[in-house]
């Protein structure tokens, strides 16, 4: 039984239990895929400034499905890949009040950011803000789950932001529009997440071959 502890406040076994959701790299692959799709879409939008309505609808539907159906999709994949190998765990949910509060804070925060950006109309700020947000989020996830690969994603998000902010000053036309939408940040973070998730999944599948049968009797 593991006795060492990464952080004196939270023993290793608790961290391992909490990190079970990301142990296989599947969430990273999903996030990486979404980020690269967003980049691809925005690149097309920049190149063909008025995309057909059907394409715009497809993109909105994709984002909507990913946000709402991402967890469902991950669960389906986990039932095929993860749970038959290392077992099923349904983590305890936080109390109902805390969940509602979290949703409210996230929703209000999102609305405030959107409102502020639409009022200020500051596209050059967007990549920087996005980079800071993603870097912070990745560092927090890395600390919470004690998974170094999130440090790699944080570095990628940070470098993407630096690249955008530095390049924006000199960029013109299509290149300016592409950078101002935060594409460099999405591209670098998405690529890092896809790479990290892929390697993690490969290592996980290699370490945990499918057992022939598990009897609990």
């Amino acid at each position: 039984m593991p006795a060492s502890s990464v952080c004196p406040m939270r023993p290793t076994w608790v961290r391992q239990l909490e990190a079970y959701w990301v142990v296989d790299g599947l969430p990273d692959l999903l996030v990486g895929g979404v980020f690269l799709t967003v980049t691809g879409w925005q690149t097309l939008e920049v190149l063909y400034l008025s995309p057909p309505p059907l394409a715009r609808f497809a993109f909105v539907a994709f984002v909507f499905f990913t946000v709402l159906g991402g967890r469902w999709l991950l669960q389906r994949l986990k039932w095929r890949l993860t749970y038959p190998r290392t077992g099923y765990l349904r983590p305890a949910l936080p109390p109902r009040q805390r969940r509602i509060l979290g949703l409210l804070v996230t929703g209000l925060g999102g609305l405030l950011v959107v409102a502020a950006l639409s009022q200020i109309g500051f596209p050059p700020l967007l990549p920087g803000l996005l980079s800071v947000f993603l870097t912070t989020a990745m560092l927090w996830l890395g600390w919470r789950y004690a998974r170094p690969r999130y440090g790699l994603y944080a570095v990628a998000a940070f470098l993407g932001g630096v690249c955008s902010v530095v390049s924006l000053a000199h960029a013109r036309g299509v290149a300016f529009l592409w950078l101002a939408d935060g594409n460099a940040v999405f591209l670098s973070t998405g690529f890092a997440a896809l790479l990290g998730g892929g390697v993690t999944l490969r290592v996980y599948l290699h370490r945990h071959p499918l057992p022939r049968s598990v009897s609990d009797e």
Binding site: Y83, G87, V214
Partner: peptide
Amino acid sequence: HAEQADFLYLL
């Protein structure tokens, strides 16, 4: 820490 866990996970 969990709502539910199966035998394989505990193993």
